[in-house]
Write a protein that binds this DNA or RNA. Structure first.
Lengths: 237, 237
DNA sequence: CTCTGTGAATGTATTCACAGCT
DNA sequence: AGCTGTGAATACATTCACAGAG
């Protein structure tokens, strides 16, 4: 039986908190697969993912019943199911906007390509940057986003511009048909319904840490290891 | 009256979800201050922070009663109170470990210094990198972490190493007295009690986005998943 | 009348604990 | 026996809705 809340369109949906953990389980499963481990229990998977066993079982139960009682989960099969649920059965080409320090680093960061998110396009508003290449990909002008998205089948945009330019870039991305945006600019961007935005503000993360740092100083233990942020999926609609 | 749950040590504590939003409010308040706005209502603050007004009021009520009924909040005062609660009345020097693409970009990223987190030390395990300078800060060997932390008063560590090196670096950081860690390595790291860890895995963010993207595009294609056999597809429900 | 602050109500998420399969 | 899958219980978070201050 599949639990979950009915989505807007009547489909059963997986709780957001569980969705945010699936990529972590997937990462662990890939690691296990690479060490030729064939079976894993919820307890072991939990330890490797930094959560508890009951949560693992509940999360996985949203995808179906793939475990074997008394034994555990088949690593390869579970990996397939988690990947499928996350839509990772094919690559998702991405476009990075803004090629300052962070944008350039992201473009050069091999981890994206390796995990199924090839960087297929780069855009910037600065004419001095347009025409150059970063990580082997030419930088094009942000005004060409419509054509770029159409010709490359890009579905995810990464915003690494200064705060002041972010809303404009996001508007262009959405107009071009991009439905998911990862925003590194330190500003809240507004989008039309149906567009998912995830914000990663590095300074925000540090500020949360300094809050908890203060609490530790008197020597008080029992910190609820913040771990993965609960999910800042601002899904408009 | 101060709400909140009693913490482990008997102190009233602010819910984790509220703590995670305080930095966003702070960012908005700084922006308002720079435009010489003196007063802000929960409704306006909510719009700028991308949440709803009731949440803003509830969150702020954990810090105390700083609003004026019928008017709103004094921007400058509220900014002070939020900053104080986050422990941002002084700078928090940070150390970045791992100077590959990401680590170097973070070191060069001006946003940290600007927001009260000056990058005071850089460490790497690669002798070829030790001795070089990045963003005007010399790269030192990771084995020198003890001295570095002691002499610079560093309380926060940023891990930008490959996954395989992360646990070792974290252990060294904790041993050196660092109590808060921002981990960019795609792996769950274990620490002693009392150490806060926040994970930022860029690939995880993208994977969450692709999950939601799929929901928007009915009839998504199911292509190859390298090295994985489909197994049986048993989607219950 | 406007807008805060907050109890009460509702909605989500986590954890417990155990039935049921291997 | 060992381990999953899942209702029930608990804990946490959000939203409602309104009393009360200005």
């Amino acid at each position: 039986m599949r639990a979950g809340n009915p989505g807007a369109d009547g489909y059963t949906s997986i709780p957001a908190a569980a969705v945010a953990r699936l990529p972590v389980y997937r990462r662990v499963l890939l690691e296990l697969l690479s060490t030729r481990t064939t079976t894993v229990s919820s307890t072991r998977l939990a330890a490797l993912a930094g959560v508890n066993a009951a949560k693992v079982r509940k999360d996985l139960s949203y995808l179906g019943s793939f475990g074997i009682r008394g034994v555990g989960y088949n690593v390869e099969h579970l990996l397939y199911e988690v990947s499928r649920e996350l839509g990772l059965t094919h690559d998702w080409p991405v476009c990075i906007a803004g090629l300052g320090n962070l944008g350039s680093a992201l473009a050069n960061y091999g981890g994206f390509e390796e995990r199924g998110y090839p960087v297929r396009a780069l855009v910037d508003a600065d004419p001095a940057k347009v025409g150059r290449e970063v990580a082997g990909v030419p930088v094009r002008h942000v005004e060409a986003l419509d054509e770029i998205v159409a010709e490359s089948g890009i579905a995810i945009g990464i915003v690494a511009t200064p705060a002041g330019a972010a809303q404009d870039v996001v508007d262009r991305m959405v107009a071009a048909g991009i439905g998911s945006i990862l925003n590194f600019a330190p500003v809240v961007v507004n989008t039309a319904d149906g567009v998912s935005v995830r914000n990663v503000d590095l300074a925000v993360e540090l500020q949360v840490l300094s809050f908890y740092q203060r609490r530790h100083v008197p020597g008080g233990p029992a910190d609820l290891l913040p771990g993965l942020s609960p999910g800042r999926v601002a899904r408009t609609g």
